[in-house]
């Protein structure tokens, strides 16, 4: 077991109000860690801290450390960090351009590739890995805003894959999707863990049990429990966890 990310005593604040308290979590390489918990328990804040998306927010403050492969992420160049730690948002956010351009956008900006044929290869590979290729291969040049929500979300996954990250953070990626689209996104997630380390925030207890290797339960800014998914769902150690997964919560 290699720990890709180590979180040490991390606390986060908005306007001096604590929303994540003294968090210690290790995230294993090539595994899916899901984080579940009711709304406002700090899950999104945790993810946005991991790739420093919150650094632009002047009201946000953090203490503690996060190590990626042993190096503090807060000492890294922000762009390099985000390239290594991709993030998928709750709502699909296709950029207002074609499917093809959406995927090649970041690699182009990051000067990763040059020739047209190399671009084609990257686009195809990313779309295949996100299980979207077959559905859009005939209309790569049509607008990304015109495909369905589930397809848009997988396009956003493909867009992340195209920059070749090491870790992907999913923030409730299926909250706006129907069951069939959800199943497709989950399918591609399980495929992805062979190459990537995945953190999946979900408010869907079943989804956590279906796809993840480990599960953490957040409540009001605190980590209540973290364990292997099968163990956590069969024999939760804390009463709050049990209440939450059996649906007796709030």
């Amino acid at each position: 077991m290699v720990d890709k990310i180590k979180v040490k005593n991390l606390s986060c604040y908005y306007n001096k109000k604590c929303v994540l308290e003294s968090l210690d979590i290790n995230i294993e390489q090539n595994k899916i860690l899901s984080i579940m918990g009711p709304a406002n328990s700090g899950k999104t804040t945790f993810l946005r801290t991991l790739n420093r998306m919150n650094d632009f927010n002047v009201n946000y403050l953090r203490k503690g450390e996060v190590y990626l492969d042993g190096y503090s992420i807060f000492c890294m160049n922000m762009e390099n960090l985000r390239k290594r730690v991709g993030m998928l948002f709750a709502m699909p956010i296709p950029l207002p351009m074609s499917i093809y351009e959406n995927i090649i956008y970041a690699p182009k900006c990051l000067n990763i590739i040059l020739s047209k044929s190399e671009q084609n290869i990257i686009v195809e590979q990313a779309l295949r890995d996100a299980s979207l290729w077959d559905e859009v291969k005939d209309r790569l040049n049509s607008s990304a805003m015109k495909i369905s929500g589930g397809q848009q979300q997988r396009l956003c996954i493909a867009r992340i894959l195209a920059v070749n990250p090491e870790i992907i953070l999913f923030d409730e990626p299926c909250s706006g999707l129907d069951p069939i689209s959800t199943a497709k996104v989950e399918e591609s997630m399980i495929e992805l863990k062979r190459k990537y380390t995945i953190v999946l925030v979900t408010n869907n207890v079943k989804q956590a049990s279906r796809v993840s290797d480990k599960t953490a339960f957040f409540l009001m800014g605190k980590l209540v429990e973290i364990n292997k998914t099968d163990e956590l769902f069969v024999s939760p150690k804390k009463k709050q966890t049990e209440d939450y997964i059996t649906g007796r919560f709030g």
Binding site: M53, R82, G86, I93, Y105, C156, I160
Partner: peptide, 21 residues
């Protein structure tokens, strides 16, 4: 704002996000 976030989250710099998005 979400366009900016999407672009930044891919590791694209702030300036390039402004120019291209």
């Amino acid at each position: 704002l979400s366009f900016r976030e999407a672009s930044l989250s891919l590791g694209v710099s702030r300036w390039k996000t402004i120019v291209h998005i």
